[in-house]
């Protein structure tokens, strides 16, 4: 497993300049993530979880250090290349506003494949079978506005994994959900991880989410203070 590394961070730092006061969101993070892992980044609010997910996902750039995703070093990519990397290699589930409001669930799932250049017949078929395997076929024709938060997150997961990404990034996926819905969602993520081998990296301060992950990384003030993989190994 350890030979098949999906994400590798070396000395990653990110400092925000907030009204001329520097905020050190990440301070020299070293982190490796193997294919097929389900990792939860934990830590209090403001500890740098989102920042870490953003730099790994190519949404933000570190000030120092290198990040390699699926063998590609992100520092060397321009904006367009980063955009294409996100489209083809990453799946994203944000805490809210994941879906295009004027498209149905099915169309939302299809749309990401259209961006990838998949033909209409194939993408319709793949989108439908993805909804089917997530047990949300009945949502196919509904628009996000007519769905509950949990339903929207399920559609977002369908959207994010239908492209077979090397990595699924989920930032506080349960932030707007009640605990029962959160349990359902995490069971789904665990199933996808175990049955389909989807690599999942999630950031959360929700103990329920942490309990579902195989490996937990604790972040405090922009630095890793504990990594359960270290104990297991």
């Amino acid at each position: 497993m350890s030979s098949d590394i999906v994400v590798s961070c070396k000395g990653v730092s990110r400092t925000y300049q907030e009204e001329s006061v520097p905020v050190h969101a990440l301070r020299g993070v070293d982190f490796e993530f193997a294919r097929g892992e389900f990792v939860s980044i934990a830590g209090p609010s403001g500890s740098g979880k989102s920042t870490l997910l953003n730099v790994i996902g190519g949404l933000d750039r570190p000030d120092a250090g290198t990040i390699t995703v699926d063998g590609v070093e992100l520092n060397g990519l321009n904006e367009t290349e980063l955009s294409d990397l996100r489209l083809h290699k990453m799946g994203f589930v944000f805490q809210s506003y994941n879906l295009i409001p004027v498209l149905s669930a099915l169309e939302n799932v299809e749309f990401i494949m259209q961006l990838q250049g998949v033909g209409p017949a194939e993408r319709a078929e793949r989108a439908m079978s993805m909804l089917d395997s997530l047990d949300i076929v009945d949502l196919a024709d509904r628009r996000p506005g007519d769905m509950s938060g949990g339903q929207q997150q399920r559609v977002a997961i369908a959207r994010s994994i239908v492209t077979n990404p090397v990595l699924l990034l989920a930032d506080e996926p349960s932030a707007n959900l009640d605990s029962a819905t959160t349990e359902d969602l995490l069971q789904l993520l665990r199933r996808l991880n175990e049955e389909r081998g989807v690599s999942i990296l999630t950031a959360t301060h929700d103990p329920i989410v942490m309990s579902y992950a195989q490996r937990q990384v604790n972040l405090r003030d922009g630095a890793i203070v504990e990594d359960s993989a270290a104990k297991v190994a």
């Binding site: 498209l103 749309f111 259209q114 209409p120």
Partner: peptide
């Protein structure tokens, strides 16, 4: 599922970008 999917696709024409714009 495939059958339903291709039926849905009928009439959607030039893809979803135009659909998003129109809606």
């Amino acid at each position: 599922i495939a059958a339903t999917a291709s039926k849905r696709d009928v009439g959607r024409g030039r893809g979803l970008v135009a659909a998003i714009a129109w809606r």
